[in-house]
Amino acid sequence: MTSGYAVPAGYAVPAGYAVPAGYAVPAGYAVPAGYVVESSRAETRDTVTLVLRPGRQPIAAHRPGQFTMLYAFGIGEVPISISGIAAGPELVQTIRAVGAVTRALCAAEPGQHVGVRGPFGTDWGVGVTAGSAGVEPPGTALSDPAGKDLLIVAGGIGLAPLRPALLTALAARERYGRITVLVGSRSPAEIAFTAELDSWREAGADVRVTVDRAEAGWRGNVGVVTQLIGKVDIDPAATVAFICGPEVMMRLTARALSALGIAETDIRVSLERNMRCGIAECGHCQLGTVLLCRDGPVLDYARARPLLAIREL
C-alpha cells in the first residue's frame, strides 16, 4: 500500500486532482488508475495501438513524448510511450509485443481492464507553454521550438512517441516552419501508422520513408534512415530535431545532424532504460547522473551525448 506516500520533492500536483482518501499522491502516479480498452488496432505484425478509456478517474493530462506505466493485471507493468495527443480523456498507447507483459497488452480486447500510472517524464517541448498540464520535473523542460523547422527522425517503433509531437505541430501548423518526418523501418510491413502517412503529408509535413529490406512491390527508398538526411533541405540554424528509435540509430542520426551544423541543444532524443517507479525513487532507470523516468525520456543531445558514449555505467 502507498498510504502516506509523499509527493517527490520538486514535483507539483496538477491542478484539479482529487486525491483519494488516505493517499497523498494522486491516483495514477503510485497507484494505477483503472482504464478500459476501448479499441485495438494492429499497426504491424507485432505492434498494436490501444485506445484506453478511463474508469473512475483519468490520469493527469499528458504532453507529447511522455510515457506511462501500463499494467496488465496479474502479469506485470511496463513503460509504454504515449502515441496520441491529449484531446480528451482517452489515452492512446502503442505497444510492441516483445515479452510477457507487452504480449498480454497487445492481445487486450475491447472491454478489458488495464492499469495506468503516469504520465511520466519529460516531453519534446512541442506545444508546451507555461502552465501546461501535467507534472513538471524541475529543470528539465525543453522549450517549444515555435518558429523553427521541425525535423522528426524515427526508427521503427520510435515513431510512436514522436507521433503526438507531430500531431500537435500539425494542429498548429502556422506555429512552426517546415515539418519534415523521416522514417526508417526494417521492412515495408513493419512501418507503423502507415494509414496516416498521407494525412500527415496533406497536413503539411514532408514525410519520407526508407526500409532496410524491400519487399516485392515496394517503390520507396531502401537504405538507412540517415541517408534521407542528405535528401532534404535543412537549415541548421533554424532546425530543431526530434529523434527516437534504437539507441545506435539515434546516436548516428544525432551525429549526422550535428555534422550538418545543428546545435546539440537543438537535437532532442528519447532514451530508454529500465523504467519502474516513474517518479525517480527506485533508481532502475539511472543512466549516469540522470534518472530517465524523471529527467528523460526526452533529453537534448548536449546532455545525452556524453551518456551514450560511456561503454558501461
Binding site: G99, G156, I157, R186, M249, C285
Partner: peptide, 20 residues
Amino acid sequence: HSSRIRMLDLYAAPGQTGGR
C-alpha cells in the same frame, strides 16, 4: 557504413521505452 548498420538489424530489437 550504411551496409554495416543495416546488417545490425537494429529495428528487430525492442525499440520502445523499456518495452517488455
